[in-house]
Amino acid sequence: MKQLVVKDIEKCVGCGLCMYACSRKFVKRPEIGNSSSAILAVSLSGFERGATVIFCRACTEPPCAQVCPTGALKPKRGGGVVYIENLCLGCKYCMDACTLNAIFEREDGKIAVCIHCGYCSSYCPHGVLAYEEVEA
């Protein structure tokens, strides 16, 4: 199966184009802004130390799904999760459970989590992200 992967994190310039691409990922409902974005570029305590990008690393035993009280997050075969939005209460237990802080809060109180669609990798101008076959 294909997943979003990091090729070289040191190349990240912190532009955040991935974050805005993630907002546009649904053909019928592209958003302008960052509310539903599930990837985040940050500086490493100040840009003098460089930048990095945070997103779901597709755990095979995802803690976020284990703490979800309603089954809105379900483990996906091969790693990562499926998010069933209309089951989500907005409790944010999943956000606490993720060691990477890779689950984000949306404007409406629900969550945004990477579904490994790979759309953002086409907008990474400096070769940090790629969308590749990985072994399950």
Partner: peptide, 9 residues
């Protein structure tokens, strides 16, 4: 973390 939608997607 806000958003708005384009008129022509």
């Amino acid at each position: 973390r806000k958003k708005y939608l384009p008129a022509n997607t």
